[in-house]
Design a protein around this nucleic acid. Structure first.
Lengths: 331, 331
DNA sequence: CTGAAAGCGCTAACAT
DNA sequence: ATGTTAGCGCTTTCAG
């Protein structure tokens, strides 16, 4: 690979001048500019960004830490991040923590070592990781999941409200024993969606027995198992609200396997869409999230924080929408 | 951030010794090892990998270039890559080319500038990009899509055979006017799957009229449009083979919108699974690919090429499986 | 406006 | 076995 010295030599100028031409930061004699550009072309010179990064002590890389690449919710979100990142001149390193705080910690360490320009994180719960980044001065944005005990830019959705809508809708349709399958205890969205569910029940004068609540893992298998456990317990539910898309799929599979009809024998509604929800029979009612927009917003917040490191942290909350399809329509 | 000099000073040794302890490359006096380790801990020292990379003139980053992050096929593949990469000490930068050769070229340029340790690419067709990498000495593995005119390690599936199985299955079930919706002309998988389809027809003595073939874009909307075009032409098909998962979904949507029954009025089979194919009604018959394994294999090949740059390029072809579900069962 | 020179933090000869 | 030293390729003062 040609270096900046090769270009300088060929263009009969100093390396400093080549650098100036390349970065357009200072004014350079037009003749020299042309000579440098010619030399760059002739040598097929591309600046070595590793050297540049070392010198500037920053990179043009963002780390995005999500908890499940297998979940279309996160990939759609990442798409939103990438589109903004690319436009702003950053590349995105995608990291999959698998809901494992240890893996998450590893990725945070890597982000620190690699001098990442910024981090967007959907944290599995512990504030410690995020605080390490903040202390090191790395710009961070929390996405999808709140981080208690860290003062950080955040992009969230109205989880409580969404869960409330879903539950109220089931009540309105005549379901009376409504169960809730929520996510891991440490994850903010799990707690908030559970709270929205409980509140909707209470408002209508219904009890919120713990027997109808299951904490699970936001995965398909977890949703299946939780549903099985609800059905095996005495006095099973007549409807279920599942706190994410994959668990909804798992729950439906379980219900189908048991030969229970949806929505007649069991009403189902889930938080977050799955692709092709409309092709599934019965089609799945959901609380729909602005997934792509979530990513875009986080990316914009990160870009802003990078240019203005000292402004106060802000939290953006996006709205969810109730999508009533067949699975929640009690005949 | 603490540097290696800070650690050296605190441990009363030279920076070189700290480096040796950290990298475990040479033998160091046990006492010093302990002193260094203590200093590292006390200063919370993490090596700056940008500096390390510059010095070693290589990084521990892989670039994975795929054509659609929104397609679960690619994300599952990436999961396979990541699992192997992480174990081998590499991080993965995921890049989304959106089937756009220009975007792909940008990412290749970035990979070159950033001194990426290796690249796994599902190319949109032009060998030029891949050749730039090879000429620069960057280890490359082609995944999912063949690159003609480049001598490169490749991991593929038996596209022709898979398409052949799908088409033969439709014939066997009694469908007689079978259409094919394939991918972009430049993409190797599109050509191969089309060829498998044609061959199966010819073997059974059927014609392969161009009127029953559509080139599309491997996207849901494209599948929908291609199906619409097939239905609007005179003498419409009684079955369709779609060359990827998203186009299958689009085709089914179109058929449903037109009020045609699947599989009675229209048989449908697709290449590559979609998640929850079994929940969709009618459930979709598919040619299933070992997606995760594809990623794993590519990653292993890349790791091997990095350690042995001069060995001859090899091509691994994985098998596909016919998954007969409801959508292809003519009553 | 331009060039010389100093380093960013680390590793790998080389010397001891 | 350990330390000294010279860069990796680039940007950015600082002089001129």
């Amino acid at each position: 690979m040609a270096t900046i010295y090769d270009v300088a030599q060929r263009a009969q100028v100093s390396p400093a001048t080549v650098s100036r031409v390349l970065n357009g930061r200072a004014s350079v004699d037009p003749d020299m500019v042309v000579r440098v550009q010619d030399a760059v072309r002739e040598l097929n010179y591309r600046p070595n960004s590793v050297a540049r990064n070392l010198r500037r002590s920053r990179t043009t890389l963002w780390t995005v830490i999500i908890s499940d690449v297998g979940n279309p919710f996160f990939t759609a979100m990442v798409r939103g991040v990438e589109d903004v990142a690319q436009r702003a001149g950053y590349s995105v390193v995608l990291c999959n923590s698998d809901e494992d705080p240890a893996k998450e910690a590893q990725y945070v360490t890597a982000a620190l070592q690699d001098q990442m320009a910024g981090v967007i994180i959907s944290s599995s719960g512990h504030a410690a990781n995020v605080n390490r980044l903040i202390e090191a001065g790395t710009p961070v944005v929390a996405i999808d999941r709140q981080i208690s005990g860290a003062n950080v830019d955040s992009v969230l959705v109205d989880n409580e409200h969404g869960a409330h809508m879903a539950t109220a809708h089931l009540l309105e349709r005549g379901y009376r024993r409504i169960a809730c399958i929520t996510g891991p205890r440490k994850v903010s969205t799990a707690a908030q969606r559970l709270r929205g569910y409980q509140q909707a029940l209470r408002e209508q004068g219904f009890a919120t027995p713990a027997a109808l609540v299951r904490y699970s893992d936001y995965r398909e298998e977890g949703g299946y198992a939780a549903m099985a456990s609800l059905l095996d317990a005495g006095d099973p539910p007549d409807a279920v609200f599942a706190a994410n898309n994959l668990m909804t799929v798992g729950a439906v599979e379980c219900v189908v396997d048991r030969g229970i009809a949806v929505p007649a024998g069991m009403g189902v509604i889930g938080f977050d869409d799955i692709p092709w929800a409309h092709l599934v029979r019965p089609s799945l009612s959901t609380v729909s999230q602005p997934t792509y927009e979530l990513g875009r917003t986080a990316a914009m917040l990160l870009a802003e924080r990078i240019t203005e490191p000292d402004r106060p942290a802000s939290t953006v909350t996006l709205q969810t929408t109730l999508k009533v399809r067949e699975s929640s329509l009690k005949p």
